[in-house]
C-alpha cells in the first residue's frame, strides 16, 4: 500500500477514535515471554492469570476438562497452571485478552472462526519453525497468533463496509485481502500494521502482520514472515481458515516463501509435507478445545 493512503487510513482511525485499546495484560505478558523458555517466571504467569477472574476460572475449567484432567481436580490457579503447562496458559491468556479487544457487539466476523484461524496459524507457525530449525519457535507462534489483528481494526473502523467485504469474499471465493482492496481500498494487513505500531509490538511481528498475504521480496520480512505466510495459507486449506471455500491449487514447494526458507534452513528439505498437512487435523482438535474454553467463559460473564 502506498504511504499516502496508509497515512490517510491512520488519520481516519485516529480521528474516529476507534482504535482498539491494547489489552492490559498483553504488554507484561509479551515482556514475560520475551525470554528463553526456561527463564520464564511461573510465578509471574500465575500472577497474570489471577489478575483476571474470568481467565482464572477458564484455566481451572480447562485443566479439569477431559483433555487434561488428572486424578485430583485442579482447584487453584497454581495447580491449574501447572497441569496445563505454561504455553497452554499463555495461549489462553492471549486469546482471552485479544478476544476482549473489541466489544462483543462489534464483531463483524464470527469471533470463534477468527480465533480458530489465529490459534491454528500460531500452532502451525511454531511447528513449522521447530521442524526447520528456526531459532525462536515461540516468536513464530506469536506472529501466527497476531497476524490477523487488522481484522479487529476493520470491525471497529468500518463495520458496514467490512461486513460487505466478507460477504464479497465468501460469495466470490476470493482471499480476504483481495476483497478488502476492492471494497475498502485497504486491507487488514495495512490496518494491522497501524494497530501493531500503536500497541508498540516488536517490529518483526508487525512485518508478519503486514506481509502475511503478500510477502513481496522475501528478504524484506525474513524467515518469520515467510513462515507465517505459509502457515496462514496451509490453515486456510485445512479447515482452520476463515470458514469459506477458496478454490485454489497451492504448490508449497514452489512458493517464493518456501524457496526462500529452503535456502536458509536445510531442514526444510527433509519435511514430509503430506504428513505435516495430515497432522494438522490433530491441531484442529486442540484449537477447538481452546476456543470453546475461551467462549464458554465469555458467555458466562
Amino acid at each position: 500500500m502506498k504511504t499516502e493512503s496508509l497515512d490517510r487510513l491512520r488519520s481516519r482511525i485516529v480521528k474516529i477514535d476507534a482504535m482498539p485499546a491494547i489489552p492490559v495484560i498483553l504488554r507484561p505478558l509479551l515482556r514475560c515471554l520475551d525470554q528463553p523458555a526456561e527463564q520464564v517466571d511461573m510465578n509471574r504467569i500465575v500472577e497474570l492469570v489471577s489478575y483476571d477472574k474470568s481467565i482464572a476460572a477458564q484455566c481451572i475449567r480447562m485443566a479439569n476438562s477431559a483433555l487434561f484432567s488428572r486424578n485430583t481436580p485442579a482447584e487453584t490457579v497454581r495447580t491449574a497452571v501447572l497441569s496445563l503447562g505454561m504455553w497452554r496458559v499463555r495461549d489462553l491468556l492471549f486469546s482471552n485478552s485479544l478476544s476482549q479487544v473489541i466489544p462483543n457487539n462489534r464483531w463483524v466476523v464470527d469471533p470463534s472462526v477468527f480465533w480458530r484461524h489465529s490459534l491454528g496459524c500460531a500452532l502451525v507457525s511454531r511447528r513449522f519453525a521447530e521442524i526447520i530449525g528456526y531459532p525462536d519457535p515461540e516468536k513464530a507462534y506469536l506472529a501466527g497468533l497476531l497476524h490477523d489483528i487488522g481484522v479487529l481494526v476493520n470491525c471497529m473502523v468500518a463495520p458496514e463496509e467490512f461486513k460487505a467485504t466478507i460477504q464479497k469474499a465468501t460469495i466470490e471465493q476470493i482471499p480476504l485481502n483481495e476483497a478488502e482492496q476492492a471494497t475498502l481500498g485497504f486491507t487488514h494487513c495495512d490496518s494491522g500494521r497501524i494497530l501493531g505500531e500503536a500497541w508498540k509490538i516488536p517490529p518483526d511481528l508487525i512485518d508478519a502482520i503486514e506481509l502475511h498475504h503478500d510477502i513481496g521480496d522475501p528478504n524484506r520480512g525474513g524467515p518469520l514472515v515467510a513462515m507465517v505466510h505459509l502457515s496462514d495459507l496451509l490453515c486456510r486449506l485445512r479447515d482452520l481458515g476463515y470458514g469459506y471455500y477458496e478454490p485454489r491449487q497451492v504448490d508449497f514447494a514452489n512458493e517464493p516463501g518456501w524457496l526462500y526458507l529452503a535456502m536458509q534452513f536445510p531442514g526444510l528439505a527433509d519435511l514430509d509435507m503430506a504428513r505435516f498437512t495430515f497432522s494438522l487435523d490433530d491441531y484442529a482438535r486442540e484449537v477447538g478445545e481452546l476456543v470453546a474454553t475461551v467462549f464458554a467463559g465469555r458467555g458466562a460473564s
Binding site: 496451509l234 486456510r236 486449506l237 485445512r238 479447515d239 481458515g241 471455500y245 477458496e246 478454490p247 485454489r248 491449487q249 497451492v250 504448490d251 508449497f252 514447494a253 514452489n254 509435507m273 503430506a274 498437512t277
Partner: peptide, 13 residues
Amino acid sequence: FRLVHFPGATAYW
C-alpha cells in the same frame, strides 16, 4: 510428481 494442496485435499501433479 509435485504435491499440490486444495482445500481439504492433496494430490500429485
